[in-house]
């Protein structure tokens, strides 16, 4: 992969990721998240993982975030925009970030193997990544796949139960 492209898309992902946090307008945050997902998908694609990249756009940018935006649009955005920065929360967040960065850098610097450059791995372009992912999912991880399926089914049933309207004892139009 051309290196400039990697830095470009990483930068894009990170800038929009920061945008998600610092925007006061929820719609702007949601859109930044979409752009960040698309940058991430571009990085997947540049690693020849076309399937993962496409699914990233299809599921997160195309479905999940549309639903988010749908809900956000129904909120009162002005009330959200008027809110001031909560200094305690910002400070707490900074402490968390610094702690995480410290831990991260200590772990990474302790990993000696990371210092040498990886040799170029030969890429087997005859194999389709879709086929390989499918095979792995349906042979090694069949059980996990089933569990996820059951989980989603339970969630769906739960949503239907929660959003079902109560049956009224007497419908008004049935009155004579």
């Amino acid at each position: 992969m051309p290196e400039p492209l990697f830095y470009f898309f990483s930068l894009l992902t990170l800038i929009f990721g920061v945008g998600v946090v610092i925007n006061r307008n929820p719609v702007a945050s949601a859109l930044c998240l979409v752009a960040s997902f698309i940058g991430l998908a571009a990085i997947y694609v540049s690693l020849n993982a076309y399937f993962l990249g496409t699914i990233q756009v299809l599921v997160y940018a195309g479905a999940v975030m549309v639903l988010f935006l749908f809900i956000i649009m129904l909120m009162d955005i002005r009330a959200e925009e008027r809110r001031k920065f909560n200094l305690v929360a910002v400070g707490g967040g900074m402490v968390l970030v610094i702690g995480f960065l410290a831990m991260f850098s200590s772990v990474v610097s302790g990993f000696k193997g990371g210092e040498q450059r990886l040799s170029q791995l030969p890429l087997d372009t005859t194999k389709s990544d879709v086929v390989e992912i499918g095979k792995t999912l349906f042979t090694d991880y069949t059980f996990h796949l089933q569990i996820v399926g059951v989980l989603l089914l339970v969630a769906t049933v739960g949503v239907v139960v929660l959003s079902r309207r109560e049956d009224r004892p007497s419908a008004p139009h049935e009155a004579p």
């Binding site: 399937f51 940018a61 749908f70 879709v130």
Partner: peptide, 25 residues
């Protein structure tokens, strides 16, 4: 010449909803 043609089409066309939603909002 992608190996994930139909998925690519679904993914990109699912983004077109943003235009309409944003226009409305």
């Amino acid at each position: 010449n992608l190996n994930v043609g139909p998925l690519f089409i679904l993914a990109i066309s699912s983004l077109s909803v943003y235009g309409i939603v944003l226009a409305g909002w």
